[in-house]
Protein backbone atom coordinates (compact mmCIF):
# COMPACT_ATOMS: atom_id res chain seq x y z
CA UNK A 1 0.00 0.00 0.00
CA UNK A 2 1.78 3.02 -1.16
CA UNK A 3 -0.58 5.89 -0.95
CA UNK A 4 1.77 7.86 1.16
CA UNK A 5 4.73 7.76 -1.06
CA UNK A 6 2.31 8.57 -3.85
CA UNK A 7 2.80 12.19 -3.68
CA UNK A 8 6.40 12.36 -4.71
CA UNK A 9 8.27 14.09 -1.95
CA UNK A 10 10.76 16.42 -3.53
CA UNK A 11 10.48 18.57 -0.45
CA UNK A 12 11.12 15.85 2.04
CA UNK A 13 14.25 14.63 0.32
CA UNK A 14 15.76 18.00 -0.40
CA UNK A 15 14.81 19.15 3.10
CA UNK A 16 17.10 16.57 4.64
CA UNK A 17 20.44 18.29 4.74
CA UNK A 18 23.14 16.24 3.12
CA UNK A 19 26.10 15.84 5.47
CA UNK A 20 28.52 16.69 2.71
CA UNK A 21 27.05 20.13 2.30
CA UNK A 22 26.23 21.03 5.86
CA UNK A 23 27.84 20.70 9.27
CA UNK A 24 27.73 17.52 11.34
CA UNK A 25 25.57 19.23 14.01
CA UNK A 26 22.79 19.87 11.56
CA UNK A 27 22.70 16.32 10.32
CA UNK A 28 22.62 14.99 13.87
CA UNK A 29 19.63 17.24 14.50
CA UNK A 30 18.00 15.99 11.33
CA UNK A 31 18.52 12.44 12.55
CA UNK A 32 16.86 13.36 15.85
CA UNK A 33 13.87 14.87 14.03
CA UNK A 34 13.63 11.78 11.87
CA UNK A 35 13.70 9.39 14.84
CA UNK A 36 11.11 11.43 16.73
CA UNK A 37 8.83 11.49 13.67
CA UNK A 38 9.24 7.77 13.13
CA UNK A 39 8.40 7.02 16.75
CA UNK A 40 5.29 9.22 16.78
CA UNK A 41 4.05 7.68 13.57
CA UNK A 42 4.61 4.17 14.92
CA UNK A 43 2.60 4.98 18.07
CA UNK A 44 -0.32 6.18 15.92
CA UNK A 45 0.04 3.10 13.72
CA UNK A 46 -0.14 0.72 16.69
CA UNK A 47 -3.34 2.38 17.91
CA UNK A 48 -4.86 2.23 14.47
CA UNK A 49 -3.94 -1.44 14.23
CA UNK A 50 -5.71 -2.81 17.31
CA UNK A 51 -9.26 -2.83 15.85
CA UNK A 52 -7.88 -4.23 12.59
CA UNK A 53 -6.01 -6.93 14.44
CA UNK A 54 -9.23 -8.17 16.01
CA UNK A 55 -10.94 -8.93 12.72
CA UNK A 56 -7.98 -10.93 11.45
CA UNK A 57 -7.41 -12.97 14.63
CA UNK A 58 -11.10 -13.53 15.39
CA UNK A 59 -11.74 -14.85 11.91
CA UNK A 60 -9.41 -17.81 12.60
CA UNK A 61 -10.81 -18.42 16.07
CA UNK A 62 -13.93 -20.56 16.37
CA UNK A 63 -14.37 -19.35 19.97
CA UNK A 64 -13.74 -15.71 19.16
CA UNK A 65 -14.75 -13.19 21.79
CA UNK A 66 -14.92 -9.41 21.54
CA UNK A 67 -11.35 -8.84 22.64
CA UNK A 68 -8.19 -9.22 20.61
CA UNK A 69 -6.77 -12.60 21.52
CA UNK A 70 -4.56 -15.18 19.93
CA UNK A 71 -6.84 -18.07 18.78
CA UNK A 72 -6.57 -21.05 21.12
CA UNK A 73 -7.02 -23.41 18.18
CA UNK A 74 -6.38 -21.46 15.00
CA UNK A 75 -8.42 -22.88 12.14
CA UNK A 76 -10.72 -22.20 9.26
CA UNK A 77 -13.96 -23.23 11.00
CA UNK A 78 -15.45 -19.75 10.66
CA UNK A 79 -14.65 -19.57 6.98
CA UNK A 80 -16.12 -23.04 6.46
CA UNK A 81 -19.30 -22.03 8.31
CA UNK A 82 -20.03 -19.07 6.05
CA UNK A 83 -18.77 -20.74 2.84
CA UNK A 84 -22.19 -21.16 1.19
CA UNK A 85 -24.37 -19.35 -1.30
CA UNK A 86 -26.91 -18.14 1.25
CA UNK A 87 -24.47 -16.44 3.62
CA UNK A 88 -21.53 -15.43 1.49
CA UNK A 89 -21.75 -15.78 -2.28
CA UNK A 90 -25.16 -14.30 -2.99
CA UNK A 91 -24.63 -11.10 -0.96
CA UNK A 92 -21.23 -10.62 -2.55
CA UNK A 93 -22.66 -11.23 -6.01
CA UNK A 94 -25.42 -8.72 -5.27
CA UNK A 95 -22.79 -6.20 -4.21
CA UNK A 96 -20.90 -6.79 -7.46
CA UNK A 97 -24.04 -6.31 -9.55
CA UNK A 98 -25.15 -3.23 -7.60
CA UNK A 99 -21.80 -1.44 -7.33
CA UNK A 100 -20.35 -2.71 -10.61
CA UNK A 101 -23.46 -1.67 -12.55
CA UNK A 102 -23.61 1.73 -10.89
CA UNK A 103 -19.88 2.31 -11.44
CA UNK A 104 -20.23 1.50 -15.15
CA UNK A 105 -23.11 3.94 -15.51
CA UNK A 106 -21.28 6.65 -13.55
CA UNK A 107 -17.95 6.41 -15.35
CA UNK A 108 -19.50 6.20 -18.82
CA UNK A 109 -21.82 9.16 -18.34
CA UNK A 110 -19.15 11.17 -16.50
CA UNK A 111 -16.63 10.68 -19.32
CA UNK A 112 -19.21 11.78 -21.88
CA UNK A 113 -20.19 14.83 -19.85
CA UNK A 114 -16.59 15.79 -19.09
CA UNK A 115 -15.61 16.00 -22.75
CA UNK A 116 -17.58 19.10 -23.77
CA UNK A 117 -16.85 20.64 -20.36
CA UNK A 118 -13.14 20.24 -20.92
CA UNK A 119 -12.97 21.05 -24.63
CA UNK A 120 -15.49 23.76 -25.45
CA UNK A 121 -16.21 27.23 -24.21
CA UNK A 122 -19.74 28.13 -23.34
CA UNK A 123 -21.53 30.60 -21.17
CA UNK A 124 -23.37 27.74 -19.48
CA UNK A 125 -20.14 26.01 -18.47
CA UNK A 126 -19.26 27.93 -15.33
CA UNK A 127 -22.74 27.78 -13.75
CA UNK A 128 -22.92 24.08 -14.59
CA UNK A 129 -19.55 23.35 -12.99
CA UNK A 130 -20.48 25.35 -9.90
CA UNK A 131 -23.71 23.36 -9.60
CA UNK A 132 -21.72 20.13 -9.93
CA UNK A 133 -19.30 21.19 -7.20
CA UNK A 134 -22.19 22.22 -4.98
CA UNK A 135 -23.86 18.85 -5.59
CA UNK A 136 -20.60 17.10 -4.60
CA UNK A 137 -21.13 18.39 -1.10
CA UNK A 138 -24.80 17.44 -0.89
CA UNK A 139 -25.16 14.84 1.87
CA UNK A 140 -26.94 11.87 0.29
CA UNK A 141 -28.28 10.89 3.71
CA UNK A 142 -30.41 14.03 3.69
CA UNK A 143 -32.26 13.16 0.48
CA UNK A 144 -32.92 9.49 1.22
CA UNK A 145 -36.43 10.04 2.58
CA UNK A 146 -37.72 11.88 -0.53
CA UNK A 147 -35.90 9.33 -2.71
CA UNK A 148 -37.65 6.54 -0.83
CA UNK A 149 -41.01 8.32 -1.09
CA UNK A 150 -40.53 8.84 -4.84
CA UNK A 151 -39.42 5.23 -5.33
CA UNK A 152 -42.57 4.06 -3.55
CA UNK A 153 -44.73 6.10 -5.92
CA UNK A 154 -43.13 4.75 -9.10
CA UNK A 155 -42.78 1.25 -7.68
CA UNK A 156 -38.98 1.21 -7.76
CA UNK A 157 -38.42 0.18 -4.15
CA UNK A 158 -36.68 -3.21 -4.04
CA UNK A 159 -35.66 -2.89 -7.69
CA UNK A 160 -31.98 -3.52 -8.41
CA UNK A 161 -32.16 -1.27 -11.48
CA UNK A 162 -33.57 1.62 -9.48
CA UNK A 163 -30.91 1.27 -6.80
CA UNK A 164 -28.18 1.11 -9.47
CA UNK A 165 -29.38 4.27 -11.18
CA UNK A 166 -29.70 6.16 -7.90
CA UNK A 167 -26.23 5.10 -6.71
CA UNK A 168 -24.82 6.09 -10.10
CA UNK A 169 -26.47 9.52 -10.01
CA UNK A 170 -25.35 10.17 -6.45
CA UNK A 171 -21.67 9.75 -7.34
CA UNK A 172 -21.89 11.51 -10.69
CA UNK A 173 -21.05 15.06 -9.51
CA UNK A 174 -17.68 14.06 -8.05
CA UNK A 175 -16.88 11.80 -11.01
CA UNK A 176 -17.68 14.50 -13.57
CA UNK A 177 -15.54 16.95 -11.64
CA UNK A 178 -12.57 14.54 -11.46
CA UNK A 179 -12.92 13.46 -15.09
CA UNK A 180 -13.05 17.05 -16.32
CA UNK A 181 -9.93 17.97 -14.35
CA UNK A 182 -8.01 14.96 -15.63
CA UNK A 183 -9.16 15.60 -19.19
CA UNK A 184 -7.91 19.18 -19.01
CA UNK A 185 -4.41 17.75 -18.70
CA UNK A 186 -4.65 15.86 -21.98
CA UNK A 187 -3.12 18.08 -24.67
CA UNK A 188 -5.62 19.10 -27.30
CA UNK A 189 -3.29 19.15 -30.33
CA UNK A 190 -3.73 15.48 -31.22
CA UNK A 191 -7.49 15.86 -31.28
CA UNK A 192 -7.29 18.88 -33.51
CA UNK A 193 -5.72 16.84 -36.26
CA UNK A 194 -8.38 14.16 -35.76
CA UNK A 195 -11.08 16.80 -36.11
CA UNK A 196 -9.66 18.18 -39.31
CA UNK A 197 -9.73 14.65 -40.67
CA UNK A 198 -13.43 14.60 -39.90
CA UNK A 199 -13.58 12.40 -36.79
CA UNK A 200 -16.71 13.11 -34.73
CA UNK A 201 -16.76 14.04 -31.08
CA UNK A 202 -17.61 10.58 -29.74
CA UNK A 203 -15.01 8.95 -31.92
CA UNK A 204 -12.34 11.40 -30.78
CA UNK A 205 -13.28 10.84 -27.16
CA UNK A 206 -13.29 7.05 -27.46
CA UNK A 207 -10.22 6.45 -29.60
CA UNK A 208 -7.95 9.37 -28.68
CA UNK A 209 -8.76 11.04 -25.37
CA UNK A 210 -9.79 8.07 -23.22
CA UNK A 211 -6.80 5.90 -24.17
CA UNK A 212 -4.54 8.82 -23.26
CA UNK A 213 -6.15 9.14 -19.85
CA UNK A 214 -6.41 5.47 -18.97
CA UNK A 215 -4.67 5.91 -15.57
CA UNK A 216 -7.00 8.78 -14.66
CA UNK A 217 -10.05 6.76 -15.68
CA UNK A 218 -8.79 3.94 -13.47
CA UNK A 219 -8.58 6.35 -10.53
CA UNK A 220 -12.13 7.59 -11.06
CA UNK A 221 -13.47 4.05 -11.56
CA UNK A 222 -11.84 2.67 -8.44
CA UNK A 223 -12.81 5.67 -6.30
CA UNK A 224 -16.41 5.34 -7.41
CA UNK A 225 -16.58 1.59 -6.94
CA UNK A 226 -14.96 1.59 -3.51
CA UNK A 227 -17.24 4.29 -2.13
CA UNK A 228 -20.29 2.41 -3.41
CA UNK A 229 -19.03 -0.92 -2.06
CA UNK A 230 -18.91 0.49 1.45
CA UNK A 231 -22.25 2.30 1.19
CA UNK A 232 -24.77 0.99 3.68
CA UNK A 233 -27.61 3.51 3.81
CA UNK A 234 -28.67 3.46 0.14
CA UNK A 235 -29.20 -0.32 -0.24
CA UNK A 236 -30.51 -0.47 3.33
CA UNK A 237 -33.31 1.89 2.32
CA UNK A 238 -33.97 0.94 -1.30
CA UNK A 239 -33.65 -2.87 -1.31
CA UNK A 240 -35.82 -5.18 0.78
CA UNK A 241 -35.91 -8.80 -0.36
CA UNK A 242 -33.21 -10.93 1.24
CA UNK A 243 -32.14 -12.34 -2.13
CA UNK A 244 -31.28 -8.86 -3.43
CA UNK A 245 -29.41 -7.50 -0.42
CA UNK A 246 -25.72 -6.70 -0.88
CA UNK A 247 -23.04 -7.68 1.63
CA UNK A 248 -23.18 -4.28 3.36
CA UNK A 249 -26.74 -4.96 4.50
CA UNK A 250 -26.47 -8.70 5.16
CA UNK A 251 -23.47 -8.08 7.39
CA UNK A 252 -25.75 -5.85 9.48
CA UNK A 253 -28.57 -8.42 9.58
CA UNK A 254 -25.94 -11.10 10.31
CA UNK A 255 -25.65 -9.92 13.87
CA UNK A 256 -29.18 -8.74 14.50
CA UNK A 257 -30.89 -11.93 13.28
CA UNK A 258 -29.69 -14.32 15.96
CA UNK A 259 -29.52 -13.51 19.64
CA UNK A 260 -26.08 -15.00 20.05
CA UNK A 261 -23.65 -13.42 17.62
CA UNK A 262 -21.02 -15.72 16.18
CA UNK A 263 -18.18 -13.19 16.27
CA UNK A 264 -15.72 -15.43 14.48
CA UNK A 265 -18.07 -15.83 11.53
CA UNK A 266 -18.84 -12.12 11.51
CA UNK A 267 -15.09 -11.45 11.33
CA UNK A 268 -14.61 -13.97 8.52
CA UNK A 269 -17.48 -12.44 6.56
CA UNK A 270 -16.05 -8.94 7.13
CA UNK A 271 -12.75 -10.09 5.68
CA UNK A 272 -14.34 -11.47 2.52
CA UNK A 273 -16.44 -8.36 2.16
CA UNK A 274 -13.45 -6.03 2.62
CA UNK A 275 -11.06 -7.94 0.37
CA UNK A 276 -12.18 -6.46 -2.98
CA UNK A 277 -11.67 -2.84 -1.90
CA UNK A 278 -8.26 -3.64 -0.42
CA UNK A 279 -7.18 -5.31 -3.66
CA UNK A 280 -8.45 -2.36 -5.70
CA UNK A 281 -6.50 0.11 -3.58
CA UNK A 282 -3.37 -1.95 -3.95
CA UNK A 283 -3.90 -1.78 -7.71
CA UNK A 284 -4.36 1.96 -7.49
CA UNK A 285 -1.13 2.25 -5.53
CA UNK A 286 0.74 5.46 -6.04
CA UNK A 287 -1.90 6.94 -8.31
CA UNK A 288 -4.16 7.49 -5.30
CA UNK A 289 -2.57 10.88 -4.68
CA UNK A 290 -3.76 12.23 -8.03
CA UNK A 291 -7.41 12.22 -7.01
CA UNK A 292 -6.54 14.01 -3.81
CA UNK A 293 -4.51 16.72 -5.39
CA UNK A 294 -7.63 17.34 -7.48
CA UNK A 295 -9.96 17.81 -4.54
CA UNK A 296 -7.36 19.82 -2.66
CA UNK A 297 -7.28 22.35 -5.47
CA UNK A 298 -11.05 22.52 -5.68
CA UNK A 299 -11.73 25.36 -8.08
CA UNK A 300 -14.33 26.08 -10.67
Amino acid sequence: MTATDTAPHPVATSGTPSPARRGGGRSRRALGVRTASDLSLLVVTVFFCIPLLWVVLASFDAQASLSVAWPAEPGLANYAAIWNAETLFRPLLNSVVLCGGATLVTVATAALAAYPLSRYRSRAKRPFLLTIIFATGLPITAIMIPVYALFVQVNLVDSMGGAILFLAASSLPYSIFLMKNFMDDVPIQIEESAWTEGAGMLRTLWSIVLPLMRPATAVVTIFTFVSMWGNFFVPFMLLLSPDKLPAAVTLYTFSSQYGQVAYGQLAAFSIFYSLPVIVLYLLLGRRLGAGFAASGGLKA
Binding site: M1, A3, D5, F232, A247, A248, S274, L288
Partner: peptide, 13 residues
Protein backbone atom coordinates in the same frame (compact mmCIF):
# COMPACT_ATOMS: atom_id res chain seq x y z
CA UNK B 1 1.67 4.19 8.65
CA UNK B 2 0.07 5.17 5.36
CA UNK B 3 -1.05 1.62 4.68
CA UNK B 4 -2.64 1.18 8.10
CA UNK B 5 -4.37 4.57 8.19
CA UNK B 6 -5.70 4.11 4.67
CA UNK B 7 -6.82 0.56 5.43
CA UNK B 8 -9.01 2.01 8.20
CA UNK B 9 -10.48 4.40 5.67
CA UNK B 10 -11.24 2.03 2.81
CA UNK B 11 -12.91 -0.62 4.95
CA UNK B 12 -16.68 -0.62 4.42
CA UNK B 13 -18.62 1.47 6.93
Amino acid sequence: TGAVVIAAWILPE
